[in-house]
Amino acid sequence: MLYFKKIYLLNNSEKQELEKSLRSKSLKRSQMLDFVFETSNIGTDKYFLGNEGKKDLKLTRIKTSFESFLPKIIISFPKETAIQYYKFRLSVLSTLILALLSFLLLISFLDVVMNQKNAEAFLITLVLSVIYFSFILLELKITKNRILKSINLDKRV
């Protein structure tokens, strides 16, 4: 999978503290998180779904039904103590949608350049691509805020 963002940590104790905080705010799942679609419309103290593999711990945010249209972002925490970062990637479905939009954008751009036609199709595809990319950025921001909220709540207890 393609990871698009890494957050570096200062030391191993910071990594362990972060992982502990996120584990306390996660529901454990045995399925791959790419194919788990779970929403919660009631208040809960859990913010993430987690899946522990051999090499890493993967988390994804539990969304409300109003947020279900946002792309799914999966966070990976490597288990190796020498690795001092965690990273973000899109789920398989979100990656396929992004690839499809990119392909359509390229095809419609080439059509406009080669044939000087279908500028409307290019603009529509461009607008849809920008909207989807904005949704990715929004989901990334919400996920980061949930991570910070988990850390702050864990420090208070």
Rank of each mutant, 00 (worst) to 15 (best):
S68E: 10
L104F: 14
I107D: 09
L101H: 07
A119E: 11
L138N: 13
I62S: 02
T60Y: 01
P71A: 00
S68R: 08
D111V: 09
P78M: 06
K54F: 14
R146Y: 14
F48G: 05
G50R: 06
E67W: 05
S68D: 10
E14Q: 13
K46G: 07
L59N: 06
K141F: 15
L105W: 09
M32D: 15
V127L: 12
L123E: 12
E80D: 13
S26F: 06
L18N: 01
F77I: 11
T44K: 11
Y85W: 06
N12L: 12
L106K: 10
L33A: 06
V130C: 11
L126F: 14
V157L: 13
L33C: 08
L153K: 07
D154F: 15
N41K: 05
L138Y: 09
F88R: 02
G43N: 14
Y8K: 07
M1V: 10
Y86T: 03
F77G: 09
K5I: 04
G50I: 10
S26W: 04
V127G: 08
M114N: 14
R29A: 09
S91Y: 00
F35S: 11
N145I: 06
F77R: 02
T60A: 03
S13P: 13
I147H: 04
K15E: 05
F88H: 01
F88T: 06
I74H: 06
L105V: 06
E17H: 12
N51S: 10
Y47A: 11
R146N: 13
Q16P: 12
L2Y: 14
L128Q: 04
V92L: 11
M114T: 15
A119L: 12
D34S: 04
I107Y: 11
I74K: 00
L110H: 04
E80H: 04
F122M: 06
P78W: 07
F69R: 01
I142F: 12
L148I: 00
I131Q: 00
P78H: 05
K55V: 03
S26R: 05
V127P: 03
